[in-house]
């Protein structure tokens, strides 16, 4: 009998601490499914960031390094350089990557560091309780944007499209944006992750998969409403799809699978 659906080997069979409806859990699952498919469990290392996914290391059945807030790409740079035959995953939230860690993210990408960043964009600071993130949409409320993000009068700046910004750097080879708000998007996102991981193992440059993710708790809406909000508010601003693909052509089946 063929096994159609099971628990990924690389994901420990424990209940997560994430809130109901949170996107992090789904993203963890996608990562581990791809690792299992690639047979990389023994050679995967995750750099887990400061953010709700600080818990990531509890759930993944492979090694991890926890770094200071935002320094994730710096840590990942060094881990990958020391262990080039390993699959190195730099897991970051939007605050971690696009605020405090912008310098590290930009320069690791520019150097073309050969690890993969999984960038979880939930347009908010989840762990610290709902402050404005660099990716918070204009008008979106946050505890530090009590009247909504106001780029002009309050000088809060505009939401950052990270991939489009990094696409100008020669070091980036594969940039794609997915979402986990419905089954179709989950499937596509898995394809992006697989493509990025495989490119990493072939030794190509910097690869980043941004994933739009729900944070119903800090958006103060129900899990069901939150998947709708990704669709109606986030996707129109953060367009899904491959932003940059300069990977060397390979006879791959992944391209097909991710369609």
């Amino acid at each position: 009998m063929e096994l159609i659906y099971g628990h990924p080997k690389s994901l420990k069979p424990i209940q997560t601490k994430y809130c109901p409806g949170c996107g992090h859990g789904v993203i963890h699952r996608l990562i581990t499914e791809v690792i299992d498919e690639m047979g990389m469990q023994q050679k995967s290392i995750i750099l887990n960031p400061v953010g709700c996914s600080i818990w990531a290391s509890i759930y993944f059945d492979f090694d991890s390094v926890q770094v200071p807030h935002g320094r994730t790409p710096a840590g990942a740079t060094a881990v990958k350089r020391m262990l080039p035959d390993h699959l190195v995953i730099c897991y970051q939230g939007d605050g971690d990557l696009a605020a405090i860690g912008t310098a590290e993210a930009v320069h690791a990408a520019n150097r073309g560091e050969k690890f993969t960043t999984i960038f979880v964009n939930n347009a908010i600071y989840g762990m610290t309780g709902g402050q404005m993130a660099p990716t918070t949409l204009v008008g979106q409320k946050a505890t530090t944007a009590p009247y909504g993000r106001d780029p002009d009068e309050a000088g809060m700046g505009y939401p950052i499209r990270v991939l489009e910004m990094l696409a100008t750097l020669a070091g980036t080879k594969y940039l794609a944006r997915g979402a986990v708000n419905n089954a179709a998007n989950v499937r596509k996102t898995k394809g992006y992750i697989k493509k990025a991981f495989e490119a990493q193992m072939r030794g190509e440059g910097s690869s980043i998969v941004e994933i739009l993710s729900q944070c119903p708790t800090n958006w103060a809406i129900s899990p069901v409403e939150s998947v709708g909000w990704v669709e109606s508010a986030m996707i129109p601003f953060y367009a899904l799809g491959v932003v940059k693909d300069e990977l060397a052509p390979v006879a791959d089946t992944v391209k097909e699978a991710s369609k």
């Binding site: 601490k17 994430y18 762990m127």
Partner: peptide, 10 residues
């Protein structure tokens, strides 16, 4: 003085 944890809801 409330107990404040890193745990989210519930």
């Amino acid at each position: 003085f409330p107990f404040y944890g890193a745990e989210k809801r519930g």
